[in-house]
Design a protein around this nucleic acid. Structure first.
Length: 818
RNA sequence: GCCGGGAUGGCGAAAUUGGUAGACGCACUAGGUUUAGGACCUAGCGGAGCAAUCUGUGGAGGUUCGAGUCCUCUUCCCGGCACCA
């Protein structure tokens, strides 16, 4: 018998598949199309186990669906713009393009080792001009519809990476840069934004339509942060100005005893009275000095100063002192709040500064209500109104509407919805990205580059100077151009786009990646998109997935896409940890190299192990012993098939034939069901059990070469094919097939064979299992109970006792209660 | 603080959704086999006990003939958000 040698047979089959274009998709066949891809990888230079964990199971699903007869398209590409290329270039004195494309070459070879069924004719690399010109096209479409705009505002600046960042790219408690972990600072700059906020409601509502993990949906919903309330105008005493306030609790308006503005609020200077002016100015200066982080740290200890001004409560005409405090955020709502006893922060602030409070909402519970009246704590829940004039006795929910409606008559209030979502800041002060296709002309101001002049090419030979502006800004030949409008000398925009623009629509370009007249042909896109299944890490829960949804919705509205959600189904694979249970990192020395695992065990063993180690969405520590186990399993499969192929003709008894058929069909059913629900680990466990069973039969019966045995082996190989494609292909050929197992039809099970003829029932007495009885599957309830009662052990246990109750669960158990 | 997810043998995990807890794999033990092996085959393997049996799914209660699964309370772990008015 030949030895199982994955190092030899895996590359062999990879070459056969490639040379025969086995996975080439007929794009014209769309009725049963199935489009499944892993998230676009960044070409960091080395494929790690996490990539394998993303790509291999995705490929298993692609292969499973292909065998089910669907026209499966799966491919992969590279998200190749971005900062690491620049850092590497500076460090090594080479061009970012050179570093990037050499990494891609290495990674392509590594990806080949996985044995995935990609149609490589659909691949793309986002740093190619053929791709990024369409990023520029997208920018121009957004600009045309006033959804790309330039504005000056406070933005997040990463001092290390020397660029601004989108809100989504600032993470963690300490507001750090998502890439490098440096705390960001606020800077006032003029930048390009995409108006994602126009889509806030749809981005929220349409989450209901998609089959995504609830966790991701919740995270997106929280990020969008919709809250409904009212905008209420407060007149400033002895002045023409008024202060607008956003509140979700207009029902508490009568309880307002003071107001607070953010220190950055535009009215602050104007409101401060002469005697308070210097204190206010000091406080504002102090706030400006504080970093975002220091402000957050001050959460527990609230600070603020009185402006000297008073506002009039429109509800009861009471005068409210106006304060400024940094717990009120300038960016949210209108940067001003009215404060009352129904809010913990307001309550705390009032106590600290000796501002009076007035309870206006009390809970149902009388004891609690008394405590609230005595101002023992801030009651923030729903309840009944007091101290609120004609609204007394009303429920909070009713009062919320009535008060706004009444004030609306005098145009003092109106209903308002607020979002936490901010517009997407896409400018980056970096070189290695898509140039923003904009020209600045002294006469014509901001001029978009005409579509016919795309791409605005990124020069690929640049010089980096330490701590200087982007190399693009230093390139005179790039910067100096002619105004497309008036033809006078003008300057190009030197910022590039956020790389998340690249990844926001690449899955559409995959489908029509050679199109040089348009980003894609709608006729193709509308047949093949949206994706049937998208698989990637949870780290993109907000960033990439939100942007891709936004861009898809935009293209739906303005470019004729039939669909407005890009990913029908989403799965997040878990995180693979080092063998020590810690996150893999070079400094910890716990990095498992997939290349080494492939060398020692083979790609099939690695694929199988990754899918067998636990639930796919859970991840977990990598175990060296675990992969040895899946390799052993493949060896056993190898042995079974090869022994069969080598065996002399021997007949097998009919009883074994039935036994084998039953085991086979049960296995088909279970593996099929498991694959449908992404239960890779249990599917593989089922295959292992099946192999164990075949071994037992083999030992009992001796080596056989019969029709039913061959059928079982063929089925086994087919069921294994999506998981371990190379060995399956080899064994399929060994069993005499000329065509690839990967385009064979997925086995079907016969429900009659899956049904047991005899089954084992548990017999419980008073809830405890006391015996097992073997009965015919179609046994009646009466017969089952009689059989249970006549079991030797049960007879002893119930002797002399009265059986009060009998429960029969078909196929499971008989329970007797005495 | 708020919102998710979780806790099952020495380890990774299963459990038809209220019905025989621990499938499958790792590790381990014994036997066989092999020139040898960390290879292969067979068997055993939650804990206690010679055994019958008892006990066991983070903890405490509850519902039920029956609870890993449902309810109440609680501890711990992981993830996300966090002064959002």
């Amino acid at each position: 018998m030949r030895r199982y040698n994955p190092q030899q047979l895996e590359p062999k089959w990879q070459k056969v598949w490639r040379d025969s274009d086995l996975y080439k998709v007929d794009m014209s066949r769309t009725a049963d199309k199935y489009y499944i891809i892993p998230m676009l990888p960044y070409p960091s230079g080395d494929l790690h186990v996490g990539h394998w964990y993303n790509f291999a199971p995705t490929d298993t699903l692609a292969r499973f669906n292909r065998m089910l007869g669907r026209n499966v398209l799966s491919t992969i590409g590279f998200d190749s713009f971005g900062l690491p290329a620049e850092n590497a270039a500076i460090k090594r004195g080479i061009q970012p393009a050179q570093w990037t494309y050499s990494n891609i070459k290495t990674m392509m070879a590594q990806i080949d080792q996985i044995g995935a069924s990609y149609d490589w004719s659909h691949t793309l690399t986002t740093s190619d001009p053929e791709y990024y010109r369409w990023n520029q096209w997208l920018f121009l479409q957004l600009y045309k519809h006033k959804l790309a705009y330039r504005a000056k505002s406070l933005v997040n600046w990463c001092p290390k990476d020397q660029t601004v960042l989108a809100n989504e790219q600032v993470v963690g408690e300490k507001n750090v840069c998502e890439r490098c972990g440096t705390p960001v600072v606020q800077k006032d700059m003029e930048q390009w934004f995409f108006k994602i906020t126009d889509y806030a409601d749809r981005l929220l509502d349409d989450l209901e339509q998609v089959d995504w993990p609830t966790k991701v949906k919740t995270m997106q919903a929280n990020w969008i942060g919709k809250s409904q309330g009212a905008l209420i105008k407060f007149k400033v005493k002895d002045s023409d100005t008024s202060i607008e306030v956003f509140t979700t609790r207009p029902d508490t308006l009568f309880g307002a005893t003071y107001m607070v503005l953010a220190p950055e609020h535009p009215l602050v200077k104007q409101l401060a009275t002469s005697e308070q002016k210097s204190k206010v100015a000091d406080y504002v200066r102090e706030t400006e000095r504080k970093t975002e982080l220091e402000r957050k740290e001050g959460e527990k200890d609230k600070t603020g100063v009185f402006t000297g001004a008073y506002a009039i409560n429109p509800a009861n005409k009471e005068e409210l002192p106006v304060w400024i405090a940094d717990f009120v955020l300038a960016q949210y709502g209108s940067g001003a709040v009215f404060a009352d006893a129904c809010d913990e922060r307001d309550f705390e602030f009032a106590k600290k500064f000796g501002i009076p409070l007035k309870p206006t909402v009390i809970p149902e519970d009388e004891i609690e209500a008394q405590k609230v009246k005595d101002l023992e704590y801030a009651y923030t829940g729903e309840g009944v109104l007091i101290n609120s004039g004609k609204y007394d006795g009303m429920s909070t929910s009713e009062a919320r509407e009535k008060i706004v409606a009444d004030l609306a008559k005098d145009k003092i209030a109106k209903e308002q919805t607020n979002y936490k979502l901010r517009d997407w800041l896409i400018s980056r002060q970096r070189y290695w990205g898509t140039p923003i296709p904009i020209v600045y002309c002294d006469d014509c101001s901001i001029v978009p580059v005409p579509e016919s002049q795309l791409p605005v090419a990124l020069p690929e030979d640049v010089t980096f100077e330490l701590n200087s502006r982007s190399p693009l800004a230093a390139r005179e030949d790039f910067v100096n151009t002619k105004c497309p409008n008036c033809k006078k000398p003008a300057k190009r925009e030197t910022d590039t786009m956020d790389t998340f623009v690249c990844s926001s629509w690449y899955f559409l370009r995959y489908l029509d990646n050679h199109n040089n007249r348009a980003p894609f042909d709608n006729a193709i896109i509308n047949k093949w998109a949206p994706l049937d299944h998208y698989i990637g890490g949870i780290e993109h829960a907000i960033l990439h997935l939100l942007y891709a949804r936004f861009v898809t919705k935009f293209l739906h509205d303005h470019h004729g896409l039939d669909f407005d959600e890009p990913f029908k189904k989403l799965t997040n694979q878990g995180l693979i940890l080092g063998p020590d249970g810690q996150k893999m990192s070079k400094s910890r020395g716990n990095v498992v190299s997939p290349d080494e695992q492939v060398t020692s065990y083979g790609a099939d063993s690695l694929r199988l192990y990754l899918m067998f180690m636990g639930p796919y969405e859970q991840g977990g520590p990598y175990s060296m012993g675990g992969i040895a186990g899946t390799r052993r399993f493949l060896e056993r499969v190898w042995t079974l098939v090869n022994e069969f192929a080598d065996a002399k003709q021997v007949a097998m008894a009919d009883t074994e034939a039935v036994e084998i058929a039953v085991a086979t069909h049960k296995t088909i059913k279970k593996v099929t069901k498991d694959l449908e629900t992404l239960g890779f680990n249990t599917a593989i466990a089922t295959l292992m059990s099946f192999v164990n069973e075949l071994y037992k039969i083999k030992v009992k019966q001796g080596l056989s070469r019969t029709w039913s045995w061959k059928q079982s082996l063929e089925t086994l190989v087919q069921l294994l094919a999506p998981f371990a494609p190379h060995i399956s292909e080899e064994l399929w050929a060994e069993l005499g097939h000329e065509n690839s197992v990967h385009i064979s039809s997925w086995p079907l099970w016969d429900e009659n064979l899956v049904k047991e003829e005899m089954l084992t029932l548990a017999v419980q007495v008073n809830g405890k299992v006391r015996a097992e009885i073997v009965v015919e599957a179609d046994i009646t309830e009466h017969a089952a109970i009689e059989a249970a009662k006549s079991d030797e052990r049960i007879v002893k246990l119930i002797a002399g006792k009265h059986v009060k109750k009998t429960i029969y669960v078909p196929g499971r158990l008989v329970s007797l209660v005495t």
